[in-house]
Design a protein around this nucleic acid. Structure first.
Lengths: 327, 327
DNA sequence: ATGAAAGCGCTAACAC
DNA sequence: GTGTTAGCGCTTTCAT
């Protein structure tokens, strides 16, 4: 069914139908109502390809999906994608998926996509220092939003982003432990240099220093085994430690295993993954649904008014603490 | 950049460029080589919208993403989507995402999508008895493949599908326990009537009956708490039970918690979720990557030759057992 | 407020 | 083997 069929059925010209859809204010109220009714009755939908040829807009938002690492900390994509797709649909956009192993191949995919499907915008996930993808898109003035802060202060790294305040999360976790009476609280995180990891460490340190306290920390690669040995090491180094804040659920899961029968140690993880729920691990919960919705909002706004508004709008969301048995 | 630019740069007509791309056999070898070179050098990609208008094919495959239940058993979508997207890209297709709460709203989304973006095919997940989606698509002759068997023998339920042999999975799990010397092996599954659940129960029963054994079973809704109480109930009913096979990792996680200090009970779950890895739960692993690749293969084949070939081709994949401490 | 004409980039059919 | 023509369905001038 085409717009011509609708026009015939409604007894008006094709353009009037088009106007009813795209510039309703220009059509007489009575006519508008009638045309909309016919469209509804016929179940007509404008052909997106034809529309795109004319307007240059595809109403497609592209996002990359990565293979997750150990599968524990990585399983946030599901929830994010679901919410992204739902919110996008409400705004009249659809989500186009792609995969890429690294920044370079992701950029190659951009070229591919832009030549063929011409998505109106991109969503970047897992941003990192010296993110080639962001600078590539920025150079070309292509609309995008990152889920994750630009971990650089360079002026050419300014772009719209949405992120969850990791420091606020570990700070809340630490305060929760402090309120429960803990005074020697350790931290197990990742090696310095990763924006996300440094941010999470910062929240723990901040909460402690506000009470004029400090604590031991260990930095290891992510993983259950690494978390366990780091925890063993840290607990041995200071027998007074009674609680651990961890940069991820994987590390926290390892820390749980490092506990010895005679010595209760409270543990808090990060990401509130299914695994945390499964073992009763208290964890910092990221509002992924809101984050996805914020991404769509930022993009939709930017796409409606291509020039107006600050191009580097951002949203920082506060995580919450999901309290379970482990702390 | 358009096909005209390429034609100019190559010193041939637009048509020849188009032919080089779509019917290379019709172009003189020398010309072909030259044109392809220019295309490569310029980084030209055919505009998909224009191509779609002419050919009626969008090279888009649509798939629905559901909000996962307790997040434990539901986190397979990630891996499946990644592989689906990757395989599809290799075949020249891209993945379009949508969300739907139930069959009816999913069908409404089909109408929407078919009117606007016109995906060439759909991938259905979580098929169930009396699946309205499959019959709707079937009635209209729309290409699709289901990840999951049609749980009905009705002739109008015949369609291409890919699935993992759940019975083979629980059978392998049970045989593993038998080989380890267990003789009283219970099963915790879902209420009868769900195809997936019945299938998994069947595998356990089959393995036992081959040894002239039988076992106790309990049927509950999915969830950790339900799994725990079902396990407590079953273990109390027969003090001789030494092992449990479960229809999901959620149930298995509950069963693990139901164990008492003095009585070791082996537990095997299903899905090999991150949570299983986290707690050392032995679990049946589904080859999701292969499943996704098989879906794309089936679709690509059907789309290349719209009439040839059996319309109800299917692929049944064997799961593997990932052995950890729990059994 | 409504109707007519043009053209987005591409490919299938036809002519050369 | 290559070039020309037409038209997919839509929206955007422009004219009425």
């Amino acid at each position: 069914m085409t717009i011509t069929d609708v026009a015939k059925a409604a007894g008006v010209s094709r353009q009037t139908v088009s106007n009813a859809l795209n510039s309703p204010e220009v059509v007489r109220e009575e006519t508008l109502k009638h045309v909309l009714e016919v469209i509804e009755r016929l179940g007509y939908r404008a052909n997106q390809a034809a529309r795109q040829m004319r307007t240059g807009r595809s109403r497609l938002i592209a996002i990359g999906i990565e293979p997750d690492g150990d599968g524990i900390s990585g399983s946030w994509a599901d929830r994010f994608l679901h919410s992204l797709s739902e919110t996008a649909a409400q705004e009249g956009y659809r989500i186009l998926l792609y995969t890429a192993a690294d920044d370079d191949s992701e950029i190659a995919t951009y070229e591919d996509l832009l030549g063929a499907y011409k998505p109106d915008a991109f969503v970047l996930t897992a941003t990192h220092h010296d993110d080639l993808r962001a600078s590539w898109l920025l150079e070309r003035g292509l609309p995008f939003v990152a889920f994750g802060r630009p971990w650089s202060d360079l002026p050419d790294a300014r772009h719209p982003w949405v992120d969850v305040d990791g420091a606020a999360g570990t700070e809340a976790a630490t305060r929760h432990l402090l309120a429960a009476g803990h005074r020697r609280i350790g931290f197990i995180g990742w090696p310095p240099g990763s924006g996300v990891g440094d941010d999470r460490r910062e929240g723990w340190a901040r909460a402690l220093s506000r009470q004029d306290l400090s604590g031991l920390q260990r930095a290891v690669e992510d993983g259950i085994a690494a978390g366990e040995s780091a925890a063993l090491d840290l607990l041995a180094a200071d027998p007074g430690v009674t609680a651990l804040v961890c940069a991820s659920d994987s590390l926290a899961l390892g820390a749980l295993q490092a506990r010895e029968p005679g010595r209760p140690v409270a543990v808090i993880g990060f990401d509130d993954t299914p695994a945390a729920r499964a073992v009763g691990l208290t964890s910092v919960h990221q509002p992924l649904g809101e984050a996805a919705a914020a991404c769509v909002d930022l993009l939709a706004r930017a796409l409606e008014s291509p020039d107006a508004g600050p191009p580097s709008a951002h949203v920082l969301l506060a995580p919450t603490l999901t309290i379970r048995q482990s702390a």
